[in-house]
């Protein structure tokens, strides 16, 4: 009984904290206290969190190295804009269709390629991501390389917050479910898990599709905030950026992915004033972090304080592992 009660207290406090965070930021925005610069970077942070967490499901938990995440983001961005701006349907329809389309793209790409292992999979996904980009460049309906400009700004704080929380919740719950244990077992030893009777292909594709769907969500938010989308935005360097967040945070750590996404967005913004050395510093930080902490900031541990505990983790034994 005590346990059940504790659980409800925890869930209650989580909801409370999230609600107050939401209200605080909403208040700051409506009261005009959060200036535009911070709003933009907050948006970037949320979108990057969505992208990083969704990629961490594929790369971190399932252990399938994917380098084509920007491609799914592109699918989401373009589909949502077609729905909202060209067909004049509501944003929610755009988001849902974007997620479905990106998930479908994930399925189409995932089914054949997920048979591949390690680096070969990485290369195949990289190639698919580039094919998506080149294809978009050649579709006149979406203006080819010029992209679609003048997209209505529909990504507001409630949407962003809801989307980010939803992404994290879905992925954390998935990872902690029986599906999640199957998925993690594939990462740990694919052959062994197959011998245990796990249909590895099914779970790999599942993780891939869900990751792609949320990348589509990120893309839809991106398109409806930054006014313009063009194929070049979603090139393989964008996929690398997302991958960097996941690895920097620690493969197999959702909190790690979140922290890294927030950190890298903040770092990018902070370095805007140093144009000459900006990318050099970024590159150095990457190399140094990897040399001194190759497992990423969090390793595969989760950041779990009592209050936040349940949101992110159930997998973590309480400190027993150290």
């Amino acid at each position: 009984m005590q346990k059940v009660k504790n659980k409800w207290i925890k869930i209650g406090s989580e909801v409370l904290i999230l609600a107050s965070l939401f209200t605080l930021v909403q208040y700051l925005i409506t009261a005009g206290l959060l200036n535009q610069y911070y709003q933009i970077n907050l948006t970037s942070m949320c979108i990057n969190v969505i992208l990083a967490v969704s990629l961490s499901l594929i790369n971190g938990f399932t252990g399938q190295l994917s380098l084509g995440h920007a491609g799914f983001m592109a699918v989401g961005a373009y589909v949502s804009v077609i729905i909202t701006n060209m067909l004049d349907l509501p944003f929610i329809v755009g988001i849902l269709v974007a997620c479905l389309a990106a998930g479908l793209a994930g399925f189409i790409i995932g089914v054949p390629t997920l048979r591949l292992k390690g680096d070969y999979l990485a290369i195949a996904t990289l190639a698919f991501g580039e094919i998506i980009r080149v294809t978009l460049q050649n579709i006149d309906y979406v203006n080819g390389p010029a992209g679609i400009m003048g997209i209505t700004k529909l990504t507001t704080w409630p949407w962003l917050f809801g989307g980010t929380v939803l992404t994290v919740l879905v992925i954390v719950n998935l990872v902690n479910s029986s599906y999640g244990r199957a998925i993690v077992s594939i990462r740990e030893d694919e052959i062994a898990s197959e011998l245990m009777g796990i249909n590895t292909t099914k779970y790999k594709v599942l993780a891939f599709v869900i990751g792609a769907m949320f990348a589509g969500l990120g893309g839809a938010f991106y398109a409806h905030y930054f006014y313009i989308i063009k194929p070049e935005t979603f090139n393989f360097l964008k996929s690398f950026d997302i991958l960097v967040m996941v690895v920097l945070g620690g493969l197999g750590s959702t909190t790690g992915a979140i922290i890294a996404a927030v950190f890298i967005t903040a770092l990018t913004a902070a370095l805007q004033s140093f144009p000459a050395i900006r990318m050099i510093l970024y590159a150095l930080i990457l190399v140094i972090v990897m040399i001194y902490r190759p497992q990423g900031l969090m390793g595969n541990k989760e950041l779990s304080i009592k209050i936040f505990g349940r949101i992110w983790s159930g997998r973590n034994e309480p400190d027993g592992n150290k």
Partner: peptide, 18 residues
């Protein structure tokens, strides 16, 4: 892990370019 090495390679690449 190989992925850590991959990220380092990306870092080195950016470093050389910039």
């Amino acid at each position: 892990t190989r992925i850590a090495a991959l990220i380092t390679a990306i870092g080195v690449s950016l470093f050389l370019e910039y």
